[in-house]
Design a protein around this nucleic acid. Structure first.
Lengths: 261, 261
DNA sequence: GCGCGAATCTCATTTTGTGAGATTTTGGTT
DNA sequence: AACCAAAATCTCACAAAATGAGATTCGCGC
């Protein structure tokens, strides 16, 4: 859980420098930021450049390199969830002005992997790759509530402060009980927890071993929803989640890849 | 150019295992393929998992992890070329049934970074991340022809065999001369070099220092083109390339990012 | 609770990475 | 074209950090 100090870790640490506001670094800036010595840093950079994770951009500027794009391409190309999910998302978005999201659960991170927008002015934007908050909103709840006991308790522990704030309970056990109750209601609903004025409606997606791996979610403007519409959408999303789960269960990666050729 | 043998290289080598046909590996399979000892391999895997490049999938299956998606997101989010290029691509594709591509030049790799399809049945598909051949087609030519002397000669050397086959000349100098001639004709055209029956029309995109960084390309079915149409499209693409180059020259990354907020 | 395979730990060995300083290369300037 | 300063690479002695055989623990299914 703490920072490892091997050379490999330090090399990968270089990639952590890159952020939305700063995707070009010079070696000197890296030295200042990371504290590596000059020859060492250059060796590290060489390693990353050779592997394609970094590219020389301007005269002295380094940016993320083509390997990143290639690897993401691989994931998109062969991710059964994504291939099946695309059509499902389109259908959901067509149903009501909204943003429909497919979010993958990575054990300690929620990442949007696909999205479909059908609102003229979406209040929040979640393209592929944008991380989602771990303890807030319908999406998070859809995962937590359907986790096996053991994992659920672990995650509650890790995010106890955030979860308490939402008023789900005070102790770990209380929160766990509250989450377990939510399993029964079908799709999970949250109002304004992530973005103000926006209602999130989410259903989990399960893999072959019945563990939740992803979430389908529609984010809808509060003002376009009445109770009947909400119920309708909940049902639709839940059904879509079930459908996706079935598809994943009965499909092997091999089939998907072959089907693409 | 050969395989480095440091531990960092070997760790990154694990990522090379993943391919379109195989994006799930067990530790044992990795051992067999890479020849690392068990404890070492597990240490490597731990490093990559901690960094988010790998994720435990099934009981023993490892897949590429969320970090890959995040890094690609960063690139997409702040790539000036991509942000400007999207609209340009749409306009190009709207002009004629075709696939319009934006391809980035990474020094030794050409990668499609965006594409726009306006043909009902495209003959070739190039989504973001798919690598392009280095020495064939209009795209490759658009880069090579506009490289500074020094780099042009180096690249000709590296791809001498392929370039000779295309009949551009026999010696490095002859090919260089042929390529230099091509600069004068505006957009570069290639017929069926990459995909049969498809004509590629390409224009380079330059950065602030007048070095080629990308290519705009339309791939069009041969049968939908006469000479007049070809000339028209060439002009349009060349103009689009110039426009994109201008945009890149006069825009700083900061502006782009701020404009997004 | 038992048993099996998967994953991790221990520790002596030695390979590998490290960094100060010298050196070469690169790009920009008269 | 020749020059200069900054950037990148190289050399080599030293020490730390990675390695792997084997023992141990973990974790799941029965």
């Amino acid at each position: 859980m703490s920072a490892g100090a091997g050379s490999a870790e330090r090399i990968l640490g270089i990639l952590d420098l890159f952020s939305e506001n700063r995707l070009e670094w010079t070696p000197d800036e890296m030295m200042a930021e990371l504290g590596y010595t000059r020859p060492t840093l250059y060796r590290y950079i060489k390693t990353l450049k050779d592997a394609g994770f970094l590219t020389q951009n301007g005269p002295h500027g380094l940016t993320l390199g083509p390997r990143v794009v290639e690897l993401d391409f691989l994931m998109r190309k062969s991710d059964a969830l994504l291939l099946e999910g695309g059509t499902v998302l389109k259908k959901l978005a067509a149903r009501h002005p909204s943003t429909a999201l497919l979010v993958r659960w990575y054990g300690n991170k929620l990442l949007c992997v696909a999205s479909e927008v059908s609102t003229p002015e979406p209040k929040s934007s979640y393209p592929r790759g944008r991380p989602m908050p771990l303890a807030r909103g319908a999406i998070s709840r859809a995962i937590l509530a359907h986790l096996p006991r053991r994992q659920m308790l672990a995650k509650i522990h890790e995010n106890l402060a955030d979860l308490r704030e939402l008023g789900l309970g005070d102790t770990v056990d209380e929160i766990a009980e509250a989450l377990r109750q939510m399993r029964k209601g079908g799709a999970l609903v949250a109002r304004g927890e992530v973005t103000d004025g926006v209602v999130g409606i989410a259903a989990p997606v399960f893999d072959a071993s019945r563990a939740p791996v992803a979430v389908l979610c529609m984010t809808v403007d509060r003002d376009t929803l009445d109770d009947r519409k909400l119920q309708e959408l909940s049902d639709v999303i839940w059904a879509a989640g079930t459908q996706l789960s079935d598809a994943l269960t009965h499909m092997r990666v091999e089939d998907v890849v072959l089907g693409e050729l």
